[in-house]
């Protein structure tokens, strides 16, 4: 019973933090410098890892699917399968997981260290709202760059799929890229961009939430970091399920 009560209180606290962080977007002062620093850290900083995961997930999809498609004599449709799985699911989810691993943990440990060294208290004592100064810029920055990162991951994934199709499956570039192009609908692109936007809130808010409630010294910072990554990753899967359900439901 106590466990349940604690869980409900945690959720309530998380929702309150989220509300205040998002409401702050519309209140002055908006710390533009901090937003840009965070965009650089999350966006530019995550580029290499996002390029790598994008490329290889596209390549691996092409490899796996070509075998199944070969049974029906439809290998030339590899591009279509790669494009749909990447744009709808793999691109957003894998990018979000990478960013969750890099940046949820980063936010939790940075804000957590500030919390245990009383820097958060000092911030409040010296006239700034830590949610406005720390949380809101991270949320805005993540929500801006995660969809962009996802587009990049989708595209490098298609290149990965192309490399496999061209060299191993002996498809012509025209065959591959035509099937990629023709398979994508606005609905795919729509959910492929809404997902990272929603994931961005989960990733940044969870990171900041666990950072801000850190207690118990450096050990606590470690704990907060782990929890942030775990919860953010699980939330990504949870959200992708529901968003997909809504989109798939609306198609039929």
């Amino acid at each position: 019973m106590d466990f349940l009560k604690k869980w409900v209180l945690d959720v309530q606290e998380f929702v309150l933090l989220s509300g205040r962080a998002i409401a702050n977007v519309f209140r002055r002062p908006l710390y533009v410098d901090d937003i840009i620093v965070q965009m650089d850290l999350i966006g530019v900083g995550s580029l290499p890892i996002v390029l790598m995961t994008g490329f290889f997930s596209g390549a691996v999809m092409a490899l796996q699917m070509s075998r199944a498609l070969a049974q029906y004599g439809q290998v030339e449709r590899t591009g279509q399968v790669v494009a749909i799985t990447l744009v709808r699911e793999l691109g957003p989810v894998l990018t979000a997981l990478m960013v969750a691993g890099r940046n949820s943990s980063g936010m939790a440990s940075e804000i957590g260290s500030m919390k245990v060294t009383e820097q958060i208290d000092a911030m409040r004592a010296l006239g700034t709202d830590p949610i406005k100064k720390l949380v809101t810029p991270r949320v805005v920055a993540t929500a801006t760059v995660l969809p962009l990162l996802t587009i990049i991951a989708d595209f490098t994934g298609m290149i990965g799929g192309f490399v496999i199709s061209y060299y191993l499956l002996n498809l012509t570039p025209l065959q591959y890229w035509t099937s990629v192009w023709q398979s994508l609908e606005y609905n795919d692109v729509g959910q492929g961009l809404i997902k990272p936007f929603m994931f961005a809130f989960a990733i940044s808010l969870v990171g900041c939430f666990y950072g801000l409630r850190t207690t118990g010294g450096t050990q606590g910072v470690g704990r907060a970091t782990t929890q942030a990554v775990v919860v953010a990753s699980v939330l990504v899967f949870f959200l992708t399920f529901f968003i997909t359900k809504i989109f798939v439901g609306s198609v039929t």
């Binding site: 260290s113 500030m114 060294t117 009383e118 820097q119 208290d121 000092a122 911030m123 004592a125």
Partner: peptide, 10 residues
């Protein structure tokens, strides 16, 4: 206020 561990911003 002077905080215990100084609490300067790193």
């Amino acid at each position: 206020m002077l905080f215990q561990e100084s609490a300067l911003f790193d």
